[in-house]
Amino acid sequence: MTRNDIDVIVVGGGVVGNCVAGFLAEAGKGVMLIDEGKGGGSTANAGSLHVQMQSRFMQLYPQNVPGMQRQLPLYPKAVRFWQALEKKLGADFEIKKNGGLMVAETEEQLAFLHTKAAQERLLGLEVDILDRADLDRMAPYLGPAVIGAEICFDEGKLNPLQCNAAIHRWLISLGVVLREGEAVKTLKREASGFRVETARGAVFRSGMLVLATAAGTAPLAGQLGIHIPARAEPLHMNITEATAPMIGHLVQHADRMITLKQFATGQIVIGGGWPADIVGDRNHPTVRLDSLIANATLARHIAPQIAPLRIIRTWAGVNTSVDGKGVLGPVSSVEGLHFAIPGDAGYTLGPLSADMVANMVLGRDPGEDMTDYTPMRFA
């Protein structure tokens, strides 16, 4: 492919940008993918397939709850899309849809889960409330402090390292031009499309541009006169040494920041939103000791059997938050410009969001009413 063969430039090489590029290339478009190569959301994801509304986001961003509720029906669809993508690529994503538990330690927390579950049922989710006897049968690894839980049957987990590698191989097989480790410096709208200059001084042009740049969207969109209030939220994660199968569900908490899941390797990933820092010239997400200690202590409290396990690695990633909903689709004021930013729990929504945006780029039906996700709502 030469520079004259580029129909679409996709900026951002996370799971969303990669999938947008792949779907467009499958449709016969000449695609270039430009990615700065900095650790972000997809490369640091802990592998949760979220479906139910996360109490953490509801507490941190109560103003976003209506947006979360509006987008909620996309989450079970997104999990099914992951399963279909795994089959399509002939890969093993280690997807396990064993259900997700959001646990409660107090009657107040349990009452919150009852209210939340009632709302989610109205929006089409398959959820139920479990008492301690149910949990003793289903999840005996939970400690005595847990008195009940909400179960969402569509939730699960996958291995993001496996997923990212398989998707990358797919892009190569499709002939997508990859400019990796190369940040975009300037974007300009021209009569024939877009001019993209990278930090290395390379200049590329295309008729269409897709920004799948997550928390880095605001400054790039601003160069084209578009306001997208995407913000970075650096988060902390841990992983333990391998142990025998123990935790079969995606575990969360009704009131505290914790997620637990166990990979097929036996390692247990501990996440849930404890803060990290963004530091240095490259704005690199960096771990915090207080988050490591608090995250591991809470994990041991919720699942005491993991107490003897050693933490073998800790790292930080970046979640992107906007207003509880994705920013997906074209900008009416800038012909040829599309955004591809999923909502909260963006890795779960990633491939589905990419498919909808790719269809809009191609002039096809995205399969959903995209009115609520339009970038123009911030105009």
Rank of each mutant, 00 (worst) to 15 (best):
L24Q: 05
M370F: 06
R80A: 15
A117N: 03
F204T: 04
K97L: 10
F57L: 10
T259R: 02
V51S: 04
I311R: 02
I306F: 04
L171S: 00
L298V: 12
G13E: 05
G225Y: 03
R195K: 15
A242E: 03
V176Q: 01
I312F: 03
D323G: 08
S332G: 14
A345S: 15
V65W: 01
L187G: 11
N295L: 13
M68R: 05
N319F: 12
P219Y: 05
T43A: 10
P275H: 04
G324M: 08
K116A: 06
V20D: 08
G336I: 06
G336C: 07
L49C: 14
Q63D: 10
L74K: 10
E126G: 08
T259S: 13
M138A: 09
A212S: 12
G201E: 06
G148C: 06
L130T: 01
P342I: 11
A316I: 13
T217L: 14
G22N: 09
G124S: 10
S291N: 08
K87W: 04
W82A: 07
H236G: 08
M370I: 12
V20G: 13
L123K: 07
G30W: 05
W315R: 07
P330Y: 04
G28N: 08
S353Q: 08
A145V: 06
A303E: 04
T115C: 03
G156W: 09
G143H: 00
D372F: 14
G12A: 09
H253L: 00
L178R: 06
P160A: 01
T43V: 13
R121L: 05
R300L: 01
A139N: 02
G216M: 14
P144E: 00
E26P: 09
G350H: 11
A165W: 00
L142Y: 01
V361W: 08
Q69Y: 01
